[in-house]
Design a binder for these strands. Structure first.
Lengths: 148, 148
DNA sequence: ATTTATGCAAAACTTTTGCATGGGA
DNA sequence: TCCCATGCAAAAGTTTTGCATAAAT
């Protein structure tokens, strides 16, 4: 029974292969770990989780893989709050959307963004080819509005 | 003649004051420098420019001001390319939009995003109050498409 | 076989902190 | 005057690099 995680992993492995990169143990492990962590993760989340799976994988390789996945557009570093630590978010189809409470950093994911028309316009206007996007709303969630 | 930069500086100074923060030399200098650098700048851009204006301002104060401005929603750290160095972008009215070429990092700014309907829907759906947003398109620009 | 990627360990940066002093309100 | 913010310098992290070795294709 091919679960979602496995399907997703295989899909991304294919992308690496097709881009001409070797499917090494370190890379596959990092990819697997990121998928396991869900949509959002920091570099230390990944370092920690990778170390838990296989201690022998070096930190440098984790960072190198994170770079590679970013270059391929599979993940994208973003800032979800005031802190200086970036969070990597999955960009399953080249895009990602969420709302962040600027007070408590809670994240609300959503799917529809209705940006395809705008993307089309921008492609014409700037003579470019758009490959994806990140949309981040900043908000105050109910808890944070009420509490004080 | 009150030029745009000065007006903008005064406006942001008011925001600091109204939020109860002192208008110190370091803070005003950082704000001024950021406005002078245009929409996008990295922390080292700011450190460098501040040092050029007044050597006696400490690095720590620059970082503290950057944090403060981020908390107030005046600027926002983002990643514009594969590099790990964040760029701060101005969020003049709580929002910012741009297109980034994922190959050469060229930035195209644009104004209209037509997201107010979506924002409204999300406020209802999640029971939150949206205060701003960041929209970032990833693209390949004409130069990068042609060259290779 | 070849070439690419890895792990290691050190180096290079960037950002944060603690504390006595100085400067706004 | 009072308290907040500063500058300094050191500490704490994080990310990158160089190189010999190992592992994918």
């Amino acid at each position: 029974m091919a679960d979602k995680h496995t399907v997703s992993l295989d899909y991304h492995k294919d992308r690496l292969r097709q881009a001409g990169y070797k499917l090494t143990h370190a890379r596959v492990t990092v990819l697997d770990v990121i998928l396991g962590l869900g949509g959002h993760c920091t570099s230390s989340d990944v370092l920690e989780a990778v170390a838990a799976v296989d201690e022998s994988i070096g930190r440098a390789s984790v960072f190198r893989t994170l770079d590679l996945l970013t270059q391929l557009g599979i993940i994208r570093p973003t800032y979800v709050d005031t802190s200086m630590t970036p969070q990597y978010v999955m960009m399953p189809d080249g895009h990602h959307h969420h709302v962040i409470c600027t007070n408590c950093s809670q994240v609300f994911e959503f799917e529809d963004c209705g940006l395809s028309d705008l993307a089309q316009q921008l492609e014409n206007k700037f003579n470019i080819e758009i490959t994806g996007h990140l949309l981040e709303f900043y908000a105050t969630c109910k808890n944070c509005t009420v509490e004080e």
